[in-house]
Every structure is written in C-alpha cells, then in structure tokens.
C-alpha cells in the first residue's frame, strides 16, 4: 500500500536540482551579459547594483512598506472575489435557473479587459486601496464563478448517485458529497486566480497609486533607475513563487485525500 514512498525520493530530488539549475542559469546569463558590457548598465543593471538598490530601499523603509501594501491589496481584493464567486459558482452548477440567469452575464463580463476598466474604477473609487480591490475583484470574480461552476459540474455523477442510494437527501448530497468532492478543483482555481490578482494589482498601481510595488517601479522609471525597476520585478516574482508554494502546501493540508496530490500542475 505504501508503495509510493521509495519510488518518489529520487524524482523529487532530481526535480529540485533541475529547478535550482534553471534559476542558476538565468542568474549566470544575467551576470555575464551585464559584466561583459554587451548590454548597457542603463538597460541591464548588474546583479550587484540591484542588490544595492534593494538595500537602499530597505533603509528608506519603502521596501517592506510597499511590499506589505501590495500584498494587503492583493489578499483583500482577491478574498472579496472568492467569497462572492465560490457560492455563486456552486449555485450556477447545481441549478438550471441560476445558470440561465447568471452564465450569459458572467461570460459577457469576463471578456471585458480589466485594464480597460481601470479609468472607470479611478473615477468611482479614487486612487486608494478601494480602487485596487475593485480592479482585482473585476479581474478575478467573473472567471472564478465559471471555474468553480465547472469544477462542481464535473464532479463524478456516480458519487452523487451512490450517496442517493445510501439514503442521502438532496441537501445531504450537496453538503456531504458535492461540496467536499469539489474542494480539490476549487483549490486549484484559487491558486490560479491569486496569480492573476497580482498582475491586475501591479497594473492598477502603475496607473495610479501612492505606494506599492507597481508604484515603485513607475517612479524608478521616471528617474531611469533601472536597478530599482529590476529590484521591484524581482520581489514581485518572488512573492508569486511563494504564493504558489503556499497554495500547493495548503492544498495538501485541506485535501490530503486528493488523488492529484496537491497541484503538481
């Protein structure tokens, strides 16, 4: 039964080695290109300058403050979308009426580029946190409704039928079978959409903001401080990586029984 354990050790280690190698390769490429002078310092700062820029910004106090500001906006805006979209998605999947009522509207709305709605959100909500929440909400909510309803609709029908033949009522089937059976797919949807939330946030901060990583990059551009722009990108990338790892871990905690084994995708 525990046949998996020994077989997994080696592939896991080689997987990690390859991952590390790909990062190392990128770093070496960066180092060589900037040290050899093939690319000008203005376009590609040396790794050491970016490191210095990070230290400077840390001393100025903006590195931590801006990172926290951005993270806060992503988490709150995305959570608002999740809280609204998950129940709606489940409803759409389990009721024909709800599907007829909501799906066409959602399909229409999800093709509106969020970027095109940024000016409107500025008009409605100003340049504060609320506007950032709105942009993230608009960017993830509609997609999430459809993703969740898809997940729920794809739950193996025979699981529900089996529950019915064991005497479960409609509500019991919903609560005791449909809901847990949908969880692995919903976790996947959450992991994917929080990634989008980061993108939309940075777009919103680039357009108008008083703080945040997007704002930092834009300000650096005005002063041609390429090292700071790189530093900003680096942090956004790292935050994305950590978020993804966090969600993979969370998936393993929430649905340890899943046959997919916690989002290998």
């Amino acid at each position: 039964m525990q046949k998996k354990a020994p077989a997994k050790v080696w592939p896991n280690r080689s997987y990690r080695t390859l991952t590390l190698a790909s990062f190392l390769f990128l770093f070496c490429l960066w180092f060589t290109l900037s040290a050899s002078g093939v690319v000008k310092e203005l376009f590609l700062p040396a790794p050491s300058s970016v490191w210095q820029a990070l230290q400077e910004m840390y001393r100025e106090g903006i590195l931590l403050a801006y990172t926290l500001d951005s993270t806060y906006r992503v988490v709150v805006g995305w959570l608002m979308a999740v809280v609204a979209a998950v129940p709606l998605g489940m409803l759409v999947a389990s009721s024909k009426k709800a599907e007829a009522l909501l799906t066409p509207v959602v399909e229409f709305a999800r093709y509106l580029p969020v970027v095109a709605m940024v000016p409107l959100t500025l008009l409605y909500f100003g340049i504060g946190d609320l506007q950032k929440f709105a942009v993230i909400f608009l960017g993830t909510f509609f997609q999430l409704v459809l993703m969740v309803s898809d997940v729920v609709a794809n739950v193996q029908r025979d699981l529900l039928r089996a529950a019915a033949t064991l005497g479960a009522s409609r509500w019991q089937i919903y609560r005791l079978v449909l809901l847990p059976a949908s969880l692995p797919g919903i976790m996947d949807s959450l992991r994917i959409t929080i990634g989008w939330a980061w993108t939309y946030l940075v777009v919103a901060e680039l357009v108008a903001a008083n703080s945040g990583l997007g704002h930092m990059i834009l300000k650096a551009q005005r002063f041609l401080a390429t090292d700071r722009m790189f530093a900003g990108l680096l942090i956004i990338g790292l935050l994305g990586l950590f978020t993804d790892l966090f969600f993979k871990w969370l998936t393993r905690v929430v649905v340890p029984w899943s046959e997919k084994e916690g989002g290998k995708a």
Binding site: A162, T165, L166, L176, V177, A181, E259
Partner: peptide, 28 residues
Amino acid sequence: GPGADRGMVFQSYTLFPWLTVQQNVEFG
C-alpha cells in the same frame, strides 16, 4: 425514488475519496 432500502454497487469506483474505508462504510 432512491432510498436506503435498495443499496447499489456501481461499475465505476464510487467511494468518497475524502473518507477512510471505515467512514465510507459508515456513511449511510
């Protein structure tokens, strides 16, 4: 309609994957 007085075993695997063997058998 369906009821607990007629148990069913399907061709596809219909165990609830989030429940242990014991919990699956206890479901009804």
